[in-house]
Amino acid sequence: MAHHENVPVVRPITDADIPTSVDTLARAFADYPFTRHVIAAEGHEKRVRHFQEVCLTRIGMVYGRVWVADEGRAVAVWATPDEDPAPAFAEVGPVLGELTGDRQVAYESAEQAVAPYRPQEPAWFLNTVAVAPEAQGKGLGGAVLVPGIEEAGHAGYPAFLETSSERNVRFYERLGFRVTAAVTLPHGGPRTWCMRKDPR
């Protein structure tokens, strides 16, 4: 029986999971090359937390799909082609713009630099994934991504993501993603890898 307990339980997020999930995202991205580049240094951690909270609760949970494991100590946020998130971005765009602060030009130029490499056809887009530091090494990161990858595949859509961490590239390759582009972001930004997994 003990062996079975090691299989992570992954389920759709509930409102009760939000505080832990936001905390997980904020801690995971406190020192991430991309967010360092596009979010102001002043009050950085607070800005990152608010940025992740907006992406989770106002975009992911409304216009996408979100799964958690370990009560939100692992969380994966997807945008799906079934919903057009444009209204959400129109609504939260100014908030995100404010959070980027004096890095807004870097944020906008980063988006423009990566845009040509994003799928032109409908796709599942991994907005964000994180595992709390104390929950790492248990396979939660892979587990929390599987439902989205599988649902995208069943529906015949590619899954797509961007990462600014070379270590993450190997992790995603093990899940069946392949690198489609490696872009060095303008204004001294980090190298960012675009990855996709096609449906079978």
Score class of each variant (00 low, 15 high):
residue 140 L to K: 10
residue 16 A to V: 11
residue 122 P to D: 15
residue 141 G to W: 08
residue 84 D to C: 14
residue 114 V to E: 02
residue 120 Q to F: 04
residue 164 S to Q: 00
residue 14 T to W: 06
residue 28 A to D: 05
residue 28 A to Q: 07
residue 83 E to T: 09
residue 200 R to D: 12
residue 147 P to E: 09
residue 11 R to I: 07
residue 46 K to Q: 05
residue 12 P to I: 09
residue 104 Q to H: 05
residue 95 V to M: 14
residue 120 Q to C: 07
residue 9 V to F: 13
residue 69 A to R: 01
residue 154 H to Q: 10
residue 124 W to G: 02
residue 90 A to R: 14
residue 145 L to K: 06
residue 143 A to Y: 15
residue 188 G to H: 13
residue 2 A to H: 11
residue 110 A to Y: 04
residue 118 R to T: 12
residue 193 W to M: 06
residue 11 R to P: 01
residue 54 V to F: 03
residue 141 G to P: 03
residue 81 P to N: 03
residue 83 E to I: 12
residue 143 A to Q: 14
residue 7 V to H: 04
residue 62 V to R: 08
residue 172 Y to A: 02
residue 119 P to F: 01
residue 112 Q to C: 10
residue 52 Q to E: 15
residue 71 E to T: 14
residue 165 S to K: 09
residue 19 P to G: 12
residue 153 G to H: 10
residue 103 R to I: 08
residue 145 L to Q: 11
residue 200 R to L: 12
residue 58 R to V: 09
residue 102 D to E: 06
residue 30 A to N: 09
residue 175 L to H: 12
residue 103 R to H: 15
residue 119 P to V: 09
residue 67 W to E: 03
residue 180 T to L: 07
residue 115 A to Q: 02
residue 27 R to E: 12
residue 23 D to E: 15
residue 92 V to E: 01
residue 44 H to I: 02
residue 176 G to H: 09
residue 37 H to K: 03
residue 195 M to R: 14
residue 131 V to M: 00
residue 118 R to C: 05
residue 143 A to F: 15
residue 18 I to C: 08
residue 119 P to H: 02
residue 100 T to H: 04
residue 47 R to M: 01
residue 28 A to G: 01
residue 176 G to Y: 06
residue 188 G to V: 06
residue 12 P to E: 07
residue 88 A to I: 10
residue 95 V to P: 08
residue 109 S to R: 13
residue 112 Q to N: 06
residue 104 Q to I: 15
residue 142 G to R: 15
residue 43 G to R: 06
residue 172 Y to H: 05
residue 15 D to I: 11
residue 90 A to G: 12
residue 12 P to A: 03
residue 142 G to Y: 10
residue 148 G to S: 08
residue 70 D to P: 05
residue 175 L to A: 11
residue 140 L to T: 11
residue 91 E to S: 13
residue 21 S to M: 08
residue 169 V to I: 04
residue 82 D to M: 09
residue 47 R to I: 04
residue 36 R to N: 13
residue 72 G to F: 14
residue 127 N to W: 07
residue 47 R to D: 02
residue 38 V to L: 00
residue 3 H to A: 14
